[in-house]
Amino acid sequence: MTSLHKRQVKAVLTWIATFILMIVMCVPGLWVVLSGFRPNREILAKPPVWIPEDLTLDNFAAIFGLSDAQVAIPVIDYFANSMIIAVTSTAIALLVGMSGGYAFARFRFGGKNALFLGLMLSRAVPGIALSLPVFIIWSHLGLIDAPMGLIIVYVALNVPFTIWLIDGFFRQIPKELSEAAQVDGCTRWQAFWKIEFPLARSGIASAGVFAFLTSWNEYALASQLTRSTDSKTLPVGLMDFTAQFTIDWAGMCAMAVIIIIPALILTFLVQKHLIAGLTFGGVKG
C-alpha cells in the first residue's frame, strides 16, 4: 500500500517538475510568437497586456511590403540566403562528417586519437573569437558579403560535431555486418551503402538537423561577414528593425516567427529519427 502511495507521489512530483520546466522553456518563445501578431503599442503597453486583445497580421504584411505602415524588409532575399547557406553547409558538413566519422570508427591510423581530440578541442574556441582573423582573411579572399564565405565558416563550425556524432553511430554497428556483406558478395562500397548507412541513418539525420539549426540560427559571425541582400541571413535581417532611436518589436517578432517556421517543420519531419538518434538504441540486433 505505502509503496504504491509513494510511487504515486513520485509520479505527481515528476509531472509538476516537467510542467514547470516546460513553462520556463516555452513561455519566452510563446511570447515572441504572440507578439508577432500584436500591434507595437500593445507590446509596449504599461502595465503589460498579458492576454492579447488585438491580434493582427499587419506586422507580416509590413515585412512583405503589403501595407504602407513600414518600409519593407527584403525578407525573400534573406530567406533565400539563409536557405542556400544552411542547406549547402549542412550537406557538406554531413558528407565530411560521414567520411570522417566512418574513418574514425573503422580504421586504425597513426595520430588518430590526437586528431580526434584536436577536432573536439576546436569546438572549445568560441566562434566569435575567430571572427576578426576570419574577417581579415575573408576580406583578402573577397569572401566578405558572399554566401560562400558563410558556408565555409559554418562547415568548419559543424564538422567536428557531425564527425563526433556519426562516429558514435558507426562505432555501434558491429564491423562483422560489413564483413558479412562482403563475404555475401558486396564490394566495400556496396556494404557501406546497403548495410552500414541504413543503420546509421538516424544518427546522420540527427547530425544533419543540428548542423542545419546551427547555421540557420547563427548571428554573431554572420553579422560580421555580411553586408547586403547578397548574403544577409534572416537572423542578421532582424537588425533591420532597429532604427537609431526606436525598435520595432512587433516587426522583429513577426520576422522571428518566419525564422522559426522552417526549423520547426524540419524538426517535425525528422523527429522519429531524432528520437531514435538521441537515445542511441537503433541498431542492436
Binding site: 558491429p174 562483422e176 555486418l177 564483413e179 558479412a180 556483406a181 563475404v183 548495410i195 543503420l199 541498431v283 542492436k284 540486433g285
Partner: peptide, 10 residues
C-alpha cells in the same frame, strides 16, 4: 562465413 555474433542485418 558464420560469425560468432551472427552478424545478421538488423
Amino acid at each position: 562465413m558464420v560469425f560468432q555474433n551472427y552478424a545478421l542485418y538488423p
